[in-house]
Design a protein around this nucleic acid. Structure first.
Lengths: 126, 126
DNA sequence: TTAACAGTTGAACAAATGTTCAAATGATAA
DNA sequence: TTATCATTTGAACATTTGTTCAACTGTTAA
């Protein structure tokens, strides 16, 4: 299995396990969705946005209330809401001057639930 | 409900829905785990690390093989593996010169599965 | 011992990111 | 109209982050 290493010349050294690399290349998910998943997780990966999502898990809220709850300015919250909306994580509805935001998808709740299980169970991980 | 707004003076304007804010404050998850969840998602939120995790979903791999698969240097991969290991996402075992990495937890696979569902179903989301 | 090689590490750099500030919308009420 | 207020927006700034490069471990084999 070592006589084919030259096919993988982008590695600065040589490939050690050609068969494993080819097996993984076939079976791992296609590239584009992986990038989409990374982008989704990137949006979750900021503590302000994570706290906002957790708040919206409980109830629909307007910008000013989220700002008050988290002790931040409306401007900062609005900037983050824009990111969340572009990512399809929240949706908004306007009532007069006030804009109410809520979670757009049940997957969001599910992802946070599993993530919470992970970080709480894992006290004493390797 | 507006006569108590002064209790939430950290908001640069006044709180509009005092009852909603207090309700969410009681029911949303405690602060520390939320930060842990955000940190976990932050690790997932880089495309290189997401691709590495997807690869390790298929099979245990050594550093050089991951580098070859993703067309990156061993150094870059090693740096990212350190982040993944610190986060408790991968574990390693050494066999001679070679260090094999694998996923440390079944939650990881589950989180990526749900995230994939989200990004693939959501063609045509709002 | 020496050479070869898988992997790790630290410094440096460029690119991306979150918050602040000030100004601008857009809607309500006087 | 004007004033007020919730929200949005853009520019600026400091901070964080990912990759590269070079040097360094640590293991194997001659």
């Amino acid at each position: 299995m070592n006589d084919r290493n030259e096919r993988l010349e982008f590695c600065e050294t040589s490939v050690i396990h050609y068969d494993i690399v080819e097996n993984v290349r076939e079976k791992m998910p296609p590239e584009d969705p992986v990038y989409d998943v990374a982008d989704l997780f990137k949006v979750f990966g900021d503590s302000t946005r994570a706290r906002m999502i957790c708040a919206l898990t409980v109830s629909e809220m307007c910008v000013c209330d989220i700002a008050a709850l988290l002790g931040m300015t409306s401007s900062a919250i609005s900037h983050q809401l824009r990111i969340l909306k572009q990512a399809g994580i929240v949706r908004s509805r306007r009532v007069g001057k006030i804009v109410y935001y809520s979670l757009a998808d049940e997957h969001i709740r599910q992802l946070f639930t599993v993530a919470f299980e992970h970080v709480t169970e894992e006290k004493g991980g390797q």
